[in-house]
């Protein structure tokens, strides 16, 4: 039973251990046979081999696992992999162009040194791209508020805000 499980197909009461799940990640289709409890984050990291999204809390408290689902930022640690079937999942690995060109937000993070250890950085960048797309980068305070779901323990916030301000200014012309 690949793909969507409908109620009529569901087995009564007894919990099943594993599930076929088809995920579309960065435009590629991945057929997985995984434990039903698997989070989208663990599916990406442990089963698909995309380790850019990071585990920092596993409870939606740090934002290091931020990915896009249909272009919207979510925390993949609180998303069941099964839940993500039928949607487009976007991760940091999918940002670069075919020629290896960086996304403007990636370049801005370099230019403004908006990172230190690099562990929260994939989540920050995925969140930052969405922040601009949502129209939540109209002022420094708005950027700060809408980027507060991504903790950076190294304390790169000043650079992160500058990078987003930079990209937003160029995007909005």
């Amino acid at each position: 039973m690949t793909g969507t499980v409908t109620l009529s197909q569901a087995q009564p009461r007894r919990a099943t251990a594993s599930l076929s799940v088809t995920l579309m990640v960065n435009g590629a289709i991945h057929d997985l046979f995984i434990d039903v409890r698997t989070s989208l984050l663990d599916a990406l990291r442990e089963h698909i081999g995309l380790t850019g999204a990071k585990k920092g809390c596993d409870h939606g408290q740090c934002g290091a696992c931020t990915v896009h689902i249909d272009g919207r930022r979510v925390v993949s640690c609180l998303t069941l992999a099964a839940q993500a079937q039928g949607y487009d999942v976007g991760t940091i690995e999918g940002l670069q162009g075919v020629d290896g060109a960086l996304h403007p937000m990636q370049q801005a993070f370099i230019d403004h040194d908006a990172l230190q250890c690099g562990y929260c950085t994939p989540g920050q960048i995925m969140s930052a791209i969405a922040c601009v797309q949502e129209g939540h980068a109209k002022s420094l305070d708005e950027i700060r508020e809408y980027m507060s779901g991504n903790l950076c323990r190294c304390g790169a916030y000043v650079g992160i805000v500058a990078a987003i301000e930079d990209v937003a200014a160029r995007t909005q012309g």
Binding site: L102, Q106, T121
Partner: peptide, 8 residues
């Protein structure tokens, strides 16, 4: 290592 880091 900035480029590596912004690519995850």
């Amino acid at each position: 290592d900035a480029r590596q880091k912004v690519c995850g």
